[in-house]
Amino acid sequence: MFRFTHTPIDPQALRAQLADPACGGYAAFEGWVRDSHEGMRVRRLEYEAFEALAVREGERILAEAIARFGVAHAACLHRVGELAIGELAVWVGVSAPHRHEAFLACRYIIDEVKQRVPIWKKEHYVSGDSGWVNCERCAAPPAHAHRHLHD
């Protein structure tokens, strides 16, 4: 289950959905809003998603994790809209017969989501500036042009 929400994420409720008597391991990842980014002090964040495609791509990632690592259940919930420092931006949970594959699948899902799912993050800095992460430096600067490689 891959979904978006405009309201605060409740990890306890999500965790309950993954409960399964056949599972002996549960791993979760929580992504929190941090107060700095590359030396800039962040005041708040804004997330935006192309939900129609993002849900499809997110579901594909979950299905890949289940097929690749043999876990029983996998889910991911991502916030959109305005978020304050410390809020939960993304939650990933996996339950599996054993802990090893649960850890691997959890790591796989969050890494792939960050790379592939059309979600964008705008940071509002304490300085008053703001910027779309990974986008602003892609802009061809007029004077000293260099190509920015995404990580």
Binding site: F50, W120, W132
Partner: peptide
């Protein structure tokens, strides 16, 4: 609402989205 190529022929009624570098998580 599906990833596509830059060279895919457009058809009448298509809905197109250009996807900036993503930054989820």
């Amino acid at each position: 609402a599906e990833f596509s190529e830059w060279s895919t022929p457009l058809a009448d009624g298509d809905a197109v989205v250009f996807i900036p570098p993503v930054a989820g998580g």
